[in-house]
């Protein structure tokens, strides 16, 4: 379990993490979402004691990371930036880490096998591709079989097979009862992996809820209605105080569920050719939620030109 209380970090005048309080529970995957520069990596560095909070605190299993006698056996972390010496082999990198925390050497081959790097274990990591480096980072995180696993953008640089593997791995780890915190920018990725969401923007908490709750709250939905007599159906629904948008012969209705609309239209003796619940994508929901807190957005060329004028 990871508990953050009033966690704050400033770099000079920049507030990278602003008064975050959240709990990452064991037994489920918690997705940590936010646009670029939202403070996800900074928060994760504070979890493992690399950065000192300006205010507030974060504890792992009830105590600070630094006070753990054998931290790698308690928390496994994959951080954003590579933490490898290019001249060292993968096996030697794992060897010194294992030695530092009294982890048996047999575990090294186990994790190399697990992440699929056994064939290149004795190569210098400077030659590793982005994805291979990422796999080694995951091997490091799992070395001590930790009950708490923190992964900062683990799928970064992985191929589709690797992405699916990380997704399955995260779910398995949570299934074993471990605490799993995974960061990402991709809502679509989190939708497949996470049970719970913590969404941040500009260092501030935007949402802390279950995946299902997030969908219900933020994914806007409407009912698409087609009828041979759209004008009559529109008039009927408007008469009931529903919100109707007409696009050609398609009606987009909000304010009542599909069953209710169907019954209403049926009782009026009108026919329907389509009655569909349409949800905007989670990606859209995420974009809407974080729209105000995107700091580093690309500007389309047209807007740029206008701005110059």
């Amino acid at each position: 379990m990871i508990v953050a209380r009033g966690l704050t970090k400033t770099f000079g005048a920049k507030v990278a993490v602003d008064d975050l309080s959240f709990t990452v529970e064991p037994g489920r995957v918690t997705g940590f979402l936010g646009p670029n520069g939202a403070g996800k990596s900074t928060t994760m560095r504070m979890v493992v004691g690399l950065d000192r909070p300006t205010a507030g605190s974060v504890t792992v299993n009830g105590h600070s990371y630094a006070s753990s006698p054998a931290p790698l056996r308690e928390v496994g972390a994959l951080l954003e930036a590579r933490a490898l010496h290019p001249g060292r082999t993968a096996r030697n990198h794992l060897r010194w880490l294992a030695a530092s925390n009294g982890i048996p050497r047999t575990r090294i081959d186990e994790v190399l096998d697990l992440v699929g790097l056994d064939a290149v274990a004795d190569q210098r990591v400077g030659r590793f591709s982005l994805g291979m480096g990422q796999r080694l980072g995951i091997a490091v995180a799992l070395l001590g079989e930790p009950p708490v696993v923190v992964l900062d953008e683990p799928v970064n640089g992985l191929d589709p097979e690797g992405i699916r593997w990380v997704r399955t791995l995260a779910r398995e780890l949570a299934g074993q009862g471990r605490t799993v915190l995974v960061s990402s920018h991709l809502m679509s990725e989190m939708a497949l992996t996470a049970d719970h969401l913590v969404v941040v923007g500009r260092g501030r908490m935007l949402a802390d809820c279950s995946m299902a709750q997030f969908i219900a709250d933020h994914a806007a939905s409407y009912v698409r209605v087609r009828s041979p007599r759209p004008g009559d159906v529109e008039a009927l629904l408007r008469g009931r105080g529903l919100d109707v948008d007409r696009h050609g012969d398609e009606l987009q209705v909000q304010g009542m569920d599909a069953a209710g609309i169907g019954d209403l239209v049926g009782r009026a003796g009108l026919h329907l050719h389509e009655l569909t619940l349409v949800r905007s994508s989670l990606e859209d929901a995420f974009m809407t939620l974080t729209a105000d807190s995107v700091e580093y957005a690309a500007h389309p060329a047209a807007q740029e030109a206008q701005a110059v004028r």
Binding site: P26, A70, W96, S100, G102, P147
Partner: peptide
């Protein structure tokens, strides 16, 4: 779901409790 035991010693078969200065030295 059962929570994974939080005992940091579970992989060291009854030898010693915590990593010591000697382990840090060995790692370095």
């Amino acid at each position: 779901i059962d929570t994974v035991a939080l005992d940091p010693d579970r992989h060291v078969p009854g030898v010693r409790r915590h990593p010591r200065a000697a382990d840090t030295l060995h790692a370095e």
